[in-house]
Design a protein around this nucleic acid. Sequence first.
RNA 1: GAGCCGUUAGCUCAGUCGGUAGAGCAGCGGGCUUUUAACCCGUCGGUCGAGGGUUCGAUCCCCUCACGGCUCACCA
Length: 601
Amino acid sequence: MATEDELIAARRAHAAELPGLGTQAYPNDFRASAPAGDDEALGDREASRARLFARVQHAKSGEGALLGLPDEAALAGDEEEHWLFGRVVGRRGPFLVIRTPHGDCQALVRNKAQPPFPMLPEADVALLALVDLADHVAVRGPLIRTKTGDVAVRANRYRHVGKAMLPPPEKWHGMTDVEKRYRERYVDLFANPDVAHVFRARSQIVKELRAFLDHRHFLEVETPLLHPLRGGATAKPFETHHNALDMQLYLRIAPELYLKRLLVGGFDRVYEIGRAFRNEGVSTRHNPEFTILEFYMAYATFEDLMDLTEAMFRHVDEALRARFYREGKTKEQWSPNGWWDERRFTLMQPFVRVDMRDAIVTRASLGADGQALCRTPLAGLTREVVDDAAALAKTLEEAFDPARMKDVLKGAPADVRTRWFDARKHLAKCDSHGERVFVLYEILVEPDLVHLYRSADGTKSLPVFVTKHPFEVSPLARRSDAEPSVTDRFELFVEGREVSNAFSELNDADDQAGRFEAQLGRRDKGDEEAMDYDADYIRALSHGMPPAGGFGLGVDRLVMMLCHQPSIRDVLLFPAQRHEKQVVRSDHVSVTESVDVKIER
RNA sequence: GAGCCGUUAGCUCAGUCGGUAGAGCAGCGGGCUUUUAACCCGUCGGUCGAGGGUUCGAUCCCCUCACGGCUCACCA
């Protein structure tokens, strides 16, 4: 037997025998947390299991490992019994390997008489004969040290707890096909323990973000996901429709404008952690729905927020490290020593803070052929030129002359040349000085942040706050008092990836109204990402919003960064995927054949 | 949206310079029963992603499609 159907048939045959043995394929009488019958003396089984794993861990760690545990032969019969229950992921001789949320532990299940060792009761032996890999089972017994020096629960009892009808992935390699892993995350999670680890870490990261903000007296709020207008970010929204109200709605692209209304309402410090939706491409850094943290803090500026951001990142990272220092034991990526060493960036040194225009000037003249930093067609660019609209336009026209670009970029890799010629197209579409500065930054600085800002010894990249974005590309940020052409804003990049965006909020209703109008102008020119004019938001600002700093963070990207995951899909339990083409048959076997999902009988 | 790459047994992978495919694991039968990817003997298992083309013959070459991965573009 070895086709999938035959593998399933074998499991069904095993399941069919269970009722004759006084149980069933899916019994409902095993409780992890409620004592029952003769188990009462043991109390809470889940607590018992947790104690078990605490002992297992203790036994396995440090000097004199396992010295506290008896050999099976030394059991007196009055030792404390533990419940070990979970999924069977392996069989080795007389041992079952049982996977639980706390980790794996093996159970010694004696199904043959071997005096002087007690074997399982006959009824349990019969049940054990029907076990398939991936079934849920439970055993109870004392903890022992095996002959080869490992820990095991010597089972005095064995119970069947739940049947698995589909065979699990290969025991050693697990499930590696990435498409399958994302589609069948439930399998990925039990077959690949490190994957489950990432999601435990993610849970803690979110908890620590909350703890950090709660500690500073921020109020957690929930604002609408269904928005009547597009606003709070420049992005294409998903559209939907409310039948009873007969109105067009958008899934929110950001909670920003609602949160700032709350500042008007008198909540000085608010935050929201929730989903935002953007109808754009998917990639290793983009999912159509993602988790965003935004917080707003009255009487703070973007400069205060930079300090707060550094503290927040370090707080979360330290909490995570502390936990995985204790639990770090499975794979090298979670090892305590590797926590910081293996990273290509460091959070331990002060983050770099650089004015976007200074960064442009610095980068323009750097670089050489064949180096990580390539030569640019803008060598010699000065801050005076960057600040002067006419001079910059003229300089760009010369620098982006195709013949000249070709000459300068002769030694550069193909992708760099492509980038520069793309930038040329973008520049052509700019109709303001600020937009040109921003394009320059995107082409010159952003791709090379990792190389430009490094620790003193050069081994790690430093997080960089890029500040003072042109006001034309910052429709919600406050203008800088000293330089009205730029805003009091920063974007934070870690290892070259943008993780957050923040600014001193614009609370001048007239200024905001003008920016909304500018957005409408962009919409008329075909910009699908432009915001709507939000008259209610203008009304809210007109009632007076305290001066404030606002902050947005891509939570998924933070998790990627802290857990060293290269793709956003590795930190999302169920990343967006196209429809799986399959037939779901009445016996629940899926076959990749026809289009879309239908039920056959 | 563009470029590149991938899809072979339930799982992990070989392979065929074009002659309809192999291994390990899982399964089944037996042995062993303190193993550490348990082991030993035997055995079952495949429309080689889908469709079309070239060919005496295609899993292999060509085209189209589906799904996926990576890179780029946009953003968080």
